[in-house]
Nucleic acid binder design. Structure first.
Length: 424
RNA sequence: GCCGGGGUAGUGUAGCCUGGUAACAUAUGGGACUGUGGAUCCUCUGUCCCGGGUUCAAAUCCCGGCCCCGGCCCCA
């Protein structure tokens, strides 16, 4: 048999086993966000293309699944979820009590060349905290991201926190024309030192200032780095204090090991202050599993200015990282598998099946009419905890044999006690 | 968009260099063992990514495409 159809490039099918582990992790993330007081929201899979162009500029059209629908409307499959959430906010949620805390989990689409940890349809889990312009909001967001990773037991991570205020300050000092800030931040984010240097030289930036800038953006470390850099920069005091306080407040949440990295720029114009990224060193080229920061988008979408801060996880990369780090994820099977021995016991077997299911116990039964040996092999393959052997001999005494699939131990249980027996 | 490595039963592989009837393991389905054999034994089915070229003959060599893996670019 020849497979007639293939999946579109960069997409994936998920097996029952894969879905089981994905849902397990997903549930942990959701629970964590809810514990932090965030509520889940959902927006459409596609939006008007304009929304994303407004946010990121015409160039992202190349990287989007954008098309015209039958009514001639320009439509795009969402490439990310922050813009849709902010649109939702401006449309309907703006008058809600502040702060507004929302989270999401959804598929997103990008027309890019697939590679390790990069697909054309992938999944993002993220949160946005809207309307609370305090440092505590930024801390709350970072703490949520870190707590999520803690809850899924991903320990091998690198957290890098930066501040655009400081970068801006440095750029101002270097007297680079303001219209080049965007490009410059882009190079900084990419750590493209060569091109950055070229840009600075071309614009007649004092070589000494160049060196200062270059050394600052490559600096990362703990609290001491903040003070070191502060001595190299004039002004920007507020931002330095902010970063220092941020680290202090994070420790109150129990998070110590965050590093400060002045090279985190997240090449986008609407980020305003704190920015952060989380990497999993176990992954290859695509090792960033999370990105976030404080931003202002509402105004751009026609709403009132409102401070927001948020992050997004690359869910698939989190799953990859968990796999690389060999984090165990429990596989769940069913509680009981019923094997009728011989035709005569099948009616009673189905009664037992029904009783178990009505008692909230996951249960399945042999539908193939198999003999014990093969039925046991099947039961083993679907990872059931117990097997219930329903045979004539036991039924004479209204009982069945329950076999524990881990130990192989068996015991005789009265039919009326099966549900109770399996609950423990 | 660019570079490299790949694509052989459901899965994992051998065969490719050096062209000559496509194989092994495992899984699935069926059967035997007549109530514990999660075993063992027997057995059916099932494969060269697609298209073109070279050749008497292509899984094998050549070209193009598609897809996968790794990297570049990009990464909202």
């Amino acid at each position: 048999m020849m497979a007639e159809f293939q999946r579109p490039r960069g997409t994936r099918d998920f097996t029952p086993e894969a879905m089981s582990t994905r849902r397990f992790i997903e549930a942990k993330l959701r629970k964590c966000a809810e514990r932090f007081g965030f509520g889940e929201v959902m927006t459409p899979t596609f939006e008007n293309t304009e929304l994303f162009v407004e946010r990121s500029g015409e160039t992202i059209l190349d990287d989007m699944y954008a098309f015209q629908d039958k009514g001639g409307r320009d439509i795009a499959l969402r490439p990310e979820l922050t813009a849709p959430i902010m649109r939702f906010y401006v449309n309907e949620l703006a008058s809600r009590p502040k702060p507004l805390k929302v989270f999401y989990f959804g598929n997103v689409f990008r027309y890019e060349r697939p590679q390790s940890g990069r697909y054309r349809e992938f999944f993002q889990f993220g949160a946005e905290l809207i309307g609370a312009p305090s440092i505590e909001s930024d801390v709350e967001i970072i703490a949520l991201a870190l707590s999520c990773l803690k809850d899924v037991s991903l320990e091998n991570i690198e957290v890098r926190i930066g501040h655009l205020g400081i970068l801006e300050c440095i750029l101002e000092e270097s007297q680079l024309p303001k219209n080049l800030y965007g490009i410059c931040l882009r190079y900084i984010d990419k750590q493209d030192i060569k091109t950055l240097k070229l840009l600075l030289s071309e614009n007649g930036i004092d070589p000494e200032k160049q060196d200062t800038l270059l050394s600052i953006i490559s600096m990362k470390g703990g609290r001491d780095v903040i003070s070191t850099v502060q001595t190299m920069v004039e002004g920007g005091d507020d931002a330095f204090v902010y970063l220092a306080n941020l680290l202090t407040k994070l420790t109150k949440y129990g998070f110590e090991g965050c590093t400060v990295d002045f090279g985190v720029a997240r090449g986008l114009d609407y980020y305003t202050g704190m920015v952060f990224e989380i990497d999993s060193p176990s992954l290859g080229a695509e090792k960033q599993i999370c990105g976030g920061g404080s931003y202002n988008l509402a105004e751009l979408f026609g709403g009132e200015e409102v401070n927001s801060t948020g992050f997004a996880f690359g869910f698939d990369r989190v799953m990859l990282a968990l796999e690389k780090d060999s984090v165990e994820i429990p596989t769940k099977g069913i509680r009981a598998y019923i094997i009728p021995i011989g035709q005569s016991t099948r009616p009673t077997s189905f009664e037992i099946l029904r009783t178990l299911r009505e008692n909230g116990i996951s249960a399945d039964i042999d539908l193939m009419g198999r003999k014990i040996s093969k039925a046991l092999a099947y039961a083993n393959s679907i990872k059931t905890d117990k097997v219930i052997l329903v045979g004539e001999k036991e039924l004479v005494n209204d009982s069945v044999t329950i076999r524990d699939m881990d130990s192989g131990d068996q015991q005789t249980v009265n039919i009326n006690d099966i549900a109770e027996h399996l609950k423990t």
